[in-house]
Design a protein around this nucleic acid. Structure first.
Lengths: 210, 210
DNA sequence: TCCGTTCGATACGCGAATGTATCCGATACA
DNA sequence: TGTATCGGATACATTCGCGTATCGAACGGA
C-alpha cells in the first residue's frame, strides 16, 4: 500500500527515463553554448523529444537548470568525500591533495556549467543559498580531513585552523578554475592546484628562496 | 589639417557623450540582471535613448559588452598599478597587500560584470584572449612588485619565485571573488583575501599551530 | 546666420521562442 | 488481454526582440 498522504501520482517508468534524458542533453547543451544562449527547443532537440515532453517534466529552463545543478553537484560531493575518506586516519595530506585534485578538475564541462550557475546565483539569493550549501558541504568534508591529519602535519596558523584552511582550499579551487576556463589546459591546472594547495596547507619552513 | 589617411569621420561631440552614456547604462543593467538576460532595448531605455542610437554606435550587444569590459578593465589595471607603485622600493609587502585588496574588492557590480564576461570568454577563444591579456598585465604588475620586495621578505619556494607568487595572488583574488558573489559580504571578503595573501606570500615559520 | 553633414527617433516587417490546448499512442495494472 | 490513465507530439496563437529604412532635428564649420 502506498503510504503517501496525497493521491498516488502513479510513478511511471517512462517519465523517469525522459527526465533523465532531458537532464543529460541539457548538460551537454549548456556546456557547449552557455545557459544564457540556450532555448528550450535546443535542449529538447538534443534529447530527441519535442517541447511537449519538456513542459510535461519542467516548468521552465530555470527549473531544469536548478535540478541539473543539484544532481551533478551531489555527485561531485560524493566523489570528493570518497577520495578523502578512503585513506587511513593519519596518512599524509599530500596524497589526499593529489587525489582530490584529480576529482575536482576532472571535467571542464562541469566547470563551465557550474560557473553559469554561479552567475545566476549571484543575482538570485534563493539560488545562491543552494550553491552556498553545496560549498559548505564540500568545505566540511575537507575540514574534517584536515583536522584528522592535523596531528601529523602542521597548518599555517594564519588561516585559523582546519576550518580556515578548508576555506582556503575551496578558494584555491575556484581560483584555478577561472584560469582553466580561459586557457583550457587541464593538466597545467591540476599541477598548479596541487602546488597551491601544498603552499597553503604546509608552511614553507626550510624551503624559502634566497 | 587632418592627418588621417581615410576620409575624416568628423568627430562629433554629441556622439562621444551618447556612447559614454550607453556604456554607463549598460554597466548598470548588466550588473543588475546579467548579460544573458538583457535586451538591447533595456540598455537604451536605461540610458534614455532609443534603439536607433544604439545601432548608430554599436553593431551588437556583444560588441558593446566587449567595449565595456575593456574600458573598465583598463581602469582597474591602472588603479592596481597605482596602488602598488606608490610605495618605496623596499617597503613591506603587507602594506601593499592591504592597499591592493581595497582596490580589487571595491565594487561588487564590477565583479558581477567581470564574471559574466568570463562566462562568455570561456566559450569564445578570441574573447578569452582579451581577458587573458588583461590578467597577464595585472599579474605582471604584481610580480614586479614582489620582485622588488624579495630582498626584504622571503617567498615560499613552492610557488616558484615572484612569478609563481603573482599567479597565486590572482588565483586567490578569483577564489575570494566567487565567495563574495554568493554572500555579498565585502568586508569579510576583504579581510579574508588579506589573510589568504599573507598566508601565500609569507611562510608560516614560527606561527604554526599545535 | 546659413548649410551640409551627422546623429538619433520613429515606424515597419520579420523571425524566433514561448506557452497552451488538444490529440494519439504508450504504459501500468487487474 | 482489456482499459483507464499518463506521457509526449503536434498545431496554434502570441509575444518579444531584432535589424532596417526613413525622416527630422541637432550640430559644426564658414
Amino acid at each position: 500500500m502506498a503510504v503517501e498522504g496525497t493521491a498516488a501520482p502513479r510513478v511511471t517508468r517512462r517519465r523517469v527515463r525522459t527526465r533523465a534524458n532531458l537532464l543529460d542533453a541539457a548538460f551537454a547543451v549548456f556546456a557547449a553554448k552557455g545557459f544564457g544562449r540556450v532555448s528550450i527547443e535546443e535542449v529538447c532537440e538534443a534529447a530527441g523529444y519535442s517541447r511537449g515532453a519538456f513542459y510535461s517534466n519542467f516548468d521552465s529552463l530555470d527549473e531544469l537548470f536548478f535540478a541539473l545543478y543539484r544532481q551533478r553537484a551531489d555527485l561531485i560531493a560524493e566523489q570528493v568525500a570518497g577520495a578523502l575518506a578512503q585513506d587511513g586516519p593519519d596518512l599524509d595530506v599530500q596524497a589526499s591533495v593529489d587525489r582530490v585534485t584529480e576529482v575536482l578538475l576532472l571535467d571542464v564541462d562541469w566547470l563551465l556549467v557550474k560557473t553559469d550557475f554561479l552567475v545566476r546565483a549571484a543575482r538570485a539569493p534563493e539560488v545562491a543559498q543552494t550553491l552556498l550549501e553545496h560549498r559548505e558541504r564540500l568545505r566540511q568534508v575537507v575540514a574534517d580531513r584536515l583536522a584528522r591529519a592535523a596531528g601529523g602535519t602542521a597548518l599555517p596558523a594564519v588561516l585559523g585552523g582546519a576550518d580556515g584552511a578548508a576555506r582556503a582550499v575551496v578558494a584555491a579551487y575556484d581560483g584555478v578554475t577561472v584560469q582553466l576556463l580561459l586557457d583550457k589546459d587541464v593538466e597545467h591546472a591540476r599541477s598548479w592546484l596541487k602546488q597551491l594547495l601544498t603552499a597553503l596547507l604546509t608552511d614553507g619552513s626550510g624551503t624559502r628562496e634566497q
